[in-house]
Amino acid sequence: MKFCLNRQTPYSVISGLLLLLTVWGCGSSTTKTESNSVSNSDTTSSAGIKAGIPSKKGVILFYGNSLTAGYGVEPAQAFPALIGQKIDSAGLKYSVVNAGLSGETTAGGKSRISWVMRQPVAVFVLELGGNDGLRGLPLADTRKNLQAIIDTVRQKSPQATIVLAGMQIPPNIGTSYTREFRGLFKELAEKNKLILIPFLLEGVGGIAKLNQPDGIHPTPAGHKIVANTVWTILRPVLK
């Protein structure tokens, strides 16, 4: 998945992004493999949850695209796995499941959410929408799809805490679209009383040394910063 640059992003990075959008489409079909990164102390995968494998730990499910899946880095270097390490270090009784899928849009996420949510989760981290924005898809559809995912999680796992990852896109599609895209995450969080991560790639997006050569996907060092951003929001939720 590819996205999220800030206002200080160099023009060269934005240009590179636009080129990538035409040749990769935010994740080709050949990269659509689900990454099941987990914490060191627990090896439950998303497939394991779907199969009904019991666990004595509460499940934290990360549901997103290639940022969550850890495109271009080892599974253990992706931010969900790093969150798992932090959980282990804190002695908390949670296992992390990575249900990220490269190239995923909100429509794709909506289509597979019921299958993924075959077992209850304690915390659901939703990281989708960036590919919609980069493709210029109608934001009304993006909003409806995200709402449908939220509704399904609430139906399947009523006690789950839902955390929504906010995203941003470069202004190439237009300032109005870009502004509305940025705002829809806050709107959904307020409407549904979700916990919001204002910008998942804070301190990483647009910084060359923290991103892979594509200028979009974080390096291992970038994922460490993303993990810290998520942990700041997630840690108070875990009991």
Results as ranks from 00 to 15, higher is better:
Pro236Asn: 04
Ala99Gln: 12
Ser176Leu: 09
Ser12Ile: 03
Asp151Pro: 00
Asn211Pro: 05
Ser176Pro: 01
Val226Glu: 00
Gln168Val: 12
Lys239Tyr: 10
Thr161Ser: 09
Asp132Gly: 02
Pro54Lys: 15
Ile60His: 11
Thr105Arg: 05
Gly70Phe: 06
Asn228Ser: 13
Ile49Glu: 08
Leu20Trp: 13
Thr175Phe: 02
Asn36Pro: 05
Gly205Ile: 03
Leu188Trp: 09
Val23Gly: 06
Ser111Gln: 14
Leu20Phe: 09
Glu180Phe: 04
Ile150Ser: 06
Pro220Ala: 15
Leu196Arg: 00
Pro220Tyr: 12
Ile216Ala: 15
Leu18Phe: 10
Ser46Met: 11
Ile195Lys: 09
His223Gln: 03
Gly70Trp: 07
Asn228Trp: 00
Pro158His: 03
Gln77Pro: 01
Leu20Tyr: 11
Glu190Ser: 13
Ala140Val: 11
Thr68Gln: 08
His223Gly: 06
Asp132Val: 00
Val97Glu: 06
Leu200Cys: 11
Thr22Cys: 10
Ile83Arg: 00
Pro10Gly: 08
Ala76Val: 14
Met1Tyr: 10
Phe199Glu: 13
Pro218Lys: 14
Trp24Tyr: 07
Pro158Met: 09
Pro218Tyr: 07
Ser46Cys: 15
Lys156Arg: 13
Ala122Gly: 08
Ala221Trp: 00
Gly64Asn: 03
Gly174Tyr: 07
Gly70Leu: 10
Glu202Ser: 15
Ala140His: 07
Met117Val: 00
Ile60Met: 04
Leu238Gly: 04
Tyr11Asp: 13
Lys50Ile: 15
Val73Lys: 04
Ser29Pro: 07
Pro75Met: 13
Leu18Ser: 07
Val226Gly: 01
Val116Gln: 14
Lys224Ile: 04
Ser157Cys: 09
Asp88Val: 06
Lys239Glu: 11
Ser89Pro: 07
Leu200Pro: 02
Ile195Trp: 05
Leu196Met: 03
Ser46Glu: 08
Val163Gly: 01
Glu190Gly: 01
Pro236Met: 03
Gly70Ser: 14
Ala148Ser: 12
Lys86Asn: 04
Glu190Tyr: 02
Pro80Ala: 05
Glu34Tyr: 14
Asp88Lys: 04
Ile169Trp: 01
Arg143Ile: 00
Pro198Met: 08
Val97Cys: 13
Gly174Ala: 05
Ser55Leu: 05
Pro75Phe: 08
Ala140Pro: 02
Leu196Asn: 02
Gln168Cys: 06
Ile83Trp: 00
Ala107Leu: 07
Val59Pro: 00
Ser39Ala: 11
Cys26Ser: 12
Met117Asn: 05
Met117Trp: 08
Lys93Gly: 11
Gln212Ser: 05
Glu180Gln: 13
Gly130Ala: 09
Gly222Tyr: 01
Ala122Tyr: 00
Gly133Arg: 04
Arg182Ile: 01
Arg182Trp: 03
Pro170Trp: 00
Leu101Ser: 03
Gly70Ile: 07
Ser95Tyr: 04
